[in-house]
């Protein structure tokens, strides 16, 4: 039990005040998503790890947890990519270059980068799930020689919803990235794979001892992707998932993000699958 006597009044830190960050670039990248580059005051670093999130403030509306989309290896700025799905995100759409956005964080537990060194990284992103995984992808690309293969599976509903198209082309062109794209519904321009993301998994040639899978996507996706990976004999503790919950406070207090007894904003949003497998509310 933690006791009140154990904390001195000088140690008390305010938790709910955002830091105002300047938008240095902003671009609507699909009909639903807008991308922002932000700068902390005095060009400080945000100090995050891949997989962490921030609470984004829009005064008059409130706050929402948003994944950090850039790698910590990028200095002086960080990036967010926000889908317009609610009141707050629809207000944020109106923010552009020169505006200030309130940020709290970074919060949560991201990927354990130390233990991923030397491993083959298998990224499995569904839809907007690419946004948090992009932080991990860029981190691996920036320290390319410290990791094994980088395999990226990315699926969207249709070609127009694919995010970061220029980067996808760059990754496609690289010899040291294995990119596999799929869409649920093709259009006239699409020449690639059609079908849900699990259709990309059977053909993968994986070195099981070396491979770490990182999965992020809509809630429905996890069970099926994990089933496919299990049928390839990938072990539970080689699988990481990043879970979306309503992380309102970010500091393990408000209760909205609880998954059984676990606070998603503290122990997650990135979890090792072997840790959350016993939690019935997780997947």
């Amino acid at each position: 039990m933690k006791r009140i006597q154990d904390v001195s009044e000088e140690e008390i830190k305010d938790l709910y005040y955002p830091t105002m960050c300047k938008v240095t670039k902003a671009r609507q990248i699909t009909s639903m998503e807008k991308w922002y580059e932000l700068e902390m005051p005095a060009s400080q670093d945000l100090g995050h790890g891949p997989g962490q999130f921030v609470e984004v403030s829009a005064f008059g509306i409130g706050e929402a947890p948003i994944s950090i989309s850039s790698s910590p290896s990028q200095k002086g700025s960080f990036e967010l990519c926000i889908r317009q799905v609610g009141t707050l995100t629809n207000v944020l759409k109106n923010y552009g270059e020169g505006d200030s956005i309130g940020i709290r964080g970074p919060f949560g537990t991201g990927y354990p980068m130390e233990s991923l060194l030397g491993k083959d990284i298998l990224i499995i992103a569904g839809g907007i799930g690419l946004v948090p995984l992009r932080s991990l992808i860029h981190y691996v690309l920036d320290k390319r020689e410290e990791f094994g293969r980088l395999i990226i599976l990315y699926g969207a509903k249709n070609p127009s919803e694919l995010l970061f198209k220029e980067e996808l082309s760059d990754w496609e062109a690289r010899d040291d990235v294995e990119l596999h794209l799929t869409v649920d519904q093709a259009d006239d321009t699409w020449t690639g794979n059609t079908g849900v993301i699990t259709t990309l998994i059977p053909e993968l040639d994986l070195n099981l001892n070396m491979t770490i899978a990182a999965i992020t996507g809509p809630p429905i996706m996890y069970k099926f992707v994990i089933m496919s990976l299990k049928s390839k004999q990938l072990q539970d503790d080689h699988i990481y998932v990043s879970l979306e919950r309503r992380m309102k406070c970010g500091v393990g207090k408000c209760g909205h993000c609880q998954i059984n007894g676990v606070y998603c904003c503290q122990d997650g949003p990135v979890f090792n699958y072997s840790d959350i497998k016993p939690l019935r509310e997780a997947l």
Binding site: M1, K2, R3, I4, D6, V7, E9, E11, I12, K13, D14, L15, V251, G252, K253, Y263, Q266
Partner: peptide, 22 residues
């Protein structure tokens, strides 16, 4: 209250609770 102390001190300590409690 002793249980709330624990809940409010776990993770990041909740500032306003602590100020009221001290």
């Amino acid at each position: 209250i002793l249980r709330l102390d624990h809940s409010m001190l776990s993770g990041q300590a909740e500032s306003n609770y602590l100020r009221r409690r001290k």
